[in-house]
């Protein structure tokens, strides 16, 4: 089981990194031939950075759209961010001070993350419009996150796992040596779910995470009259004349 999970983690990480890098590269090199910011939009690059920050950190547009979706979605994402940061302790030695500091908050965040996910799923199940637009993968994606959250919380509150051994296992992975892993079903389930998440990330709607930064309606400055904007393929049309 150790070796299997170790190999899976290597493969999944490789797929995640390469897949995501490839996707981001595609977004970056695909031209945006026209100025299409959703206005009113900031007129300067500094303004665009602020707008994007508000969008990514506070989910500004979603806030305007629907308070329930915003509340549940933000709760899920913010909690998850804290939970991920909390897990840094398995990968660094010595553990940084601020990572130590957030440990207890990370636990509450785990619970909050689960609540947010359940709320989002309830919305998907019971709101007619959202149910209509949901594909099986939309439901499964939420279930996957719920499985990760529940198995993680269970190891804290129900059946403790040997976290020291887990840390040794991951430290080992980082130095290409396979160390023993506690043979707990919940732990294996937790880790396997994370492997699945890493694998599907570059091929699924989870690409919204890098995608938002490349969205022309959000990342362009509103200055088309002041600065000529032209893509390479469009400029060619002018030289043909």
């Amino acid at each position: 089981m150790n070796a299997l999970l170790a190999i899976l983690f290597y493969l999944a990480t490789l797929l995640f990194v390469v897949g995501l890098f490839h996707r981001i590269r595609t977004y970056a090199v695909t031209p945006a031939p026209l100025k299409i910011p959703t206005t009113p939009a900031p007129t300067t690059t500094g303004g665009v950075v602020l707008r994007m920050t508000r969008e990514v950190v506070l989910f500004e547009s979603l806030f305007k759209a629907n308070l329930w979706t915003w509340g549940l979605g933000w709760l899920f994402h913010a909690s998850m961010a804290l939970v991920v940061l909390r897990h840094l302790r398995y990968f660094i030695e010595p553990v940084w001070g601020w990572v130590v500091f957030i440990q207890p908050f990370g636990i509450y965040a785990g619970i909050a993350m689960l609540l947010g996910l359940c709320g989002l799923w309830a919305r998907r199940l019971f709101v007619e419009r959202i149910r209509y637009i949901s594909t099986p993968s939309d439901h499964l994606m939420l279930l996957l996150f719920i499985a990760i959250a529940i198995s993680g919380l269970m190891m804290k509150f129900v059946a403790h796992t040997d976290v020291i051994a887990v840390k040794i296992f991951f430290q080992g992975l980082m130095h290409f040596s396979i160390q023993p892993l506690p043979a707990d079903t919940i732990l294996v389930l937790h880790l396997f779910s994370v492997v699945v998440l890493l694998v599907i990330f570059p091929f699924s709607k989870l690409l919204h995470a890098p995608g938002v930064f490349f969205s022309p309606t959000r990342n362009q400055a509103d200055n088309p009259r002041e600065k000529r904007h032209i893509s390479a393929w469009a400029a060619k049309m002018e030289s043909e004349k």
């Binding site: 945006a32 979706t69 709101v127 594909t135 709607k205």
Partner: peptide, 16 residues
């Protein structure tokens, strides 16, 4: 040729 289309095809999470 259009980054908008490429990103928008991928990014939607069906949030509603």
């Amino acid at each position: 040729r259009f980054r908008s289309l490429k990103v928008y095809m991928d990014a939607c999470v069906h949030c509603g």
